[in-house]
Every structure is written in C-alpha cells, then in structure tokens.
Design a protein around this nucleic acid. Structure first.
Lengths: 205, 205
DNA sequence: ATATTTGGTAAACACTGTTTACCAAGTGTA
DNA sequence: TACACTTGGTAAACAGTGTTTACCAAATAT
C-alpha cells in the first residue's frame, strides 16, 4: 500500500470511491438503477472520467461483483471460525449464506443471478467449491459423512451448494415479501440435509 | 376465439407474433439482447406500433415471462401424468423442472432470476406452490411422507422447491459450461431428498 | 353518407454508455 | 531551471435506447 507514489495512492483511492458508490447505488436501486452518469454525478466527476478507471460499465460491475464476493466470503468465514466438525461448518456456513442473501438481496442477485453465457467470477466460484469439497472430504474421512459410489463427495458438495443456493435465491427474489421466518426454516431444512449425509444410501430402514 | 371480429382476431394474432418473436429474441440473445427497435424491425413494424399492444417494454417482458411459465408448467405436467404416488410425482416433476432449465436457460433466467423488489408473476408462483403443497399433503395422508411439528407440510414443500430451484438455477447459470451430467446427478440428489421425506426427524438411527 | 374508432407511421424527446479532442497540472529528466 | 511527457479530467459529440407526440388512412359504426 505505502510503496506507491502519492498520485498512485490518490488514483487507487478514487477507484475505491467509484466502486463503493457503485455498490451502494446497486444496493439501493438495483442493478438496473446503476447509471454511469448518475454515478459520476454523485462522486463529482464527469462521465468520461470513469473510463480512466474502468474499461466499461460491465467491467465496473464485474469489479463490484468481486467486491461483494469478498464480503460474502468474509461474512461466512467469520461465522465458521471455531466450529470444529464438518457438519457444524456446513450448517453454520450455509446459514450464514442464507442470512447474507436475506440481508443483502441486491448484492446476492448481482453475484448469482447473472445471465447465462456470461460466466464471470469463475475464480471465486472455483475456490468456494474447492473449500466446500474440502469440508465434505474432511467429514468423510472423519466418519461423519458416508459416501457411496453413486453419492460421492462431489455429489454431496453439489447437493449442499444447491440447497443453500436454492433457499438463498428464493429468499432474495420471490420470497422477499413473504412473512415467513426463512432463516429458522432454513435451519430445520439444512439440519435435515446434513443429517442425511451421515446415512448410507442402502443402509437405512 | 372465434367469437371475435376479424379485426380483433388480426390484432390478437399480431400480438402473438410480437410475443413469439420477443421470446425467440430473448432465447437467442438473452434478456439484455431484447430491443424494442430490433423487434419492431423483425416483424416489419415501427417501434411506436408496439405500444398499441403493450404499455411498455417491461409490460412486454412480463407477458413473455407468463408465456414461459405456461410452457414450463405444460412440460412438467406432461411428465407427471400417469404417475400415481406423491414421491414419484415429486421426483419426475422435479427432474422435468431441472431438465427444462438445462434446455432453456434463458427462459429459466427470465422466469426466476429477476431483480428483488420486482415481485411479478405472483399468481403463477402461488398456484405452483399450491400444487406442490397438495402433492406433499397427499403423500402425508397416504403415509408416504412423515411430517413433524417442526418439519411440516410447508417445510417439506419449501425444501422441495429450494432443492429443485437450486439445482436448476446452478444449471442454468454458473454450471452451463461444466461437463457434468447434471440431470443424472439431479436424479440421485432428488431421490435422496424424497427418500428422506419418509423418515421422521426423531425416528431414525 | 357521415362520424368515429383503430392500427400504423415519422419524428422528436429524453435518456443511456462510450469516444474523441483537448487541456492543465503534475512528473521525470537534461 | 527548462523542457518533454505522462496523467487525470473535461466538454462535446456519437450512436444507441425506450417512449411520446402529432398525424393519417383505412376500417368500422351509425
């Protein structure tokens, strides 16, 4: 940070300023409410000036999205610290995920509800999936989870991701106006799902 | 249909024409690729003419979305016919849902990945949720599913919806380029979930 | 035969993201 | 100190968007 020229630091600060105001604009008015001209107006610049910092509006949005991913990851990581076993990490992490979507629906929408074909944020997605897989495998070797050839670590990971994402997505879009305590409901559902990870496919009933 | 003036029928036909071309434009180029002017060009009209049929672009998109919902419902209904028990209906219906998202990712994105606060299509959503609830309750009274005070019919319904929507959503967006057979994986996961519906929370292991 | 509604057009309006030409201030260097 | 040059910013234009307005011809209704 401090190993840069003053002008480089100023530029970096201005960039952060743009990014932060863009994020707030999205949070308040949705992704559709983000306008380069309005944003330039807020930070007292000319629209053209923003193009010295970002190549395009889409480029700026990508940067905001990356910022949101960092916030989400930090939120989850903070909840998962000093949880020991895999099942607890999955439960607390998943709940944090759902809660974040409930608290910041616009950010969640920005991160995950993007158009097909525009497959951006591949890096963050891969690392998140990798972390998830690590937890699952840890649970398997510790004997907490039971894997079968058909329902292996990958399948369990996808199952985890899908249920959490499904709940969070419904929460952030179609269920926003509902008067249901989704976080409490999520806890019940997630417990059910994680409980099941410790039951072999052909070993029950 | 036939109890209308010729001019009313012509108008209805033109409206369908607009709607159909708008849908195809979205399917091919995404929701962002839908342009009133380009659409007018395709159907050989002037941009202003479309406003005799739809109040606004958003109004047109809502109509396309409603059309997509009908297609999705028909697709699912066709798969669920002559399935008798609740578990089978849930499995086949859920798989049809996932498959539709895989086949028509842009339509799925249009239907479900809309901005928070814009809570449109509430009607179709409510009837879909109602049908789902009916199936669950049928499964409960027939003894296929086990409900508890904590994990009641509503919870089971939300669980079903969330897992199917989660899989379909991942499928339609972030996992499009992956080389995974998501339909096969979905079958395994859905079976797991539905199997669990017949296991009481405190009655196992 | 006359009046009125209807479906369509051309053009303007008010926006949007983006690019261009330009410039002043800051920076590096002989 | 003097000169060349990069940098961050501006104003204005460009191309595109959704939408509205004024107008009109043809179909309909009376």
């Amino acid at each position: 940070m401090t190993d840069l020229n003053p002008q480089a630091r100023r530029k970096a600060q201005t960039r952060r300023d743009i990014l932060e105001n863009a994020r707030q604009m999205i949070v308040k008015q949705g992704i559709g409410g983000l306008s380069i001209r309005a944003l330039a107006d807020v930070i007292d610049y000319t629209p053209g000036a923003l193009y010295k910092y970002f190549d395009s509006k889409e480029d700026l949005i990508d940067a905001v999205r990356a910022d949101c991913f960092e916030r989400l990851n930090a939120f989850i990581a903070e909840r998962v610290t000093d949880v020991q076993n895999a099942a607890g990490m999955l439960l607390e992490g998943g709940l944090a995920y759902v809660e974040y979507a409930a608290l910041h629906p616009q950010e969640y929408h920005l991160m995950f509800n993007m158009e097909p074909s525009r497959a951006t944020c591949g890096e963050q997605r891969k690392t998140a999936m990798h972390m998830l897989l690590q937890i699952i495998k840890m649970g398997i070797v510790q004997g907490d989870f039971i894997a079968t050839p058909e329902y292996d670590a990958d399948a369990i990971a996808y199952h985890s991701w899908a249920i959490v994402h499904g709940i969070a997505s419904l929460q952030a879009t179609v269920l926003l106006d509902e008067r249901i305590d989704m976080v409490a409901l999520s806890r019940v559902i997630l417990k059910k799902v994680i409980d099941q990870f410790s039951v072999g496919t052909y070993a029950k009933r």
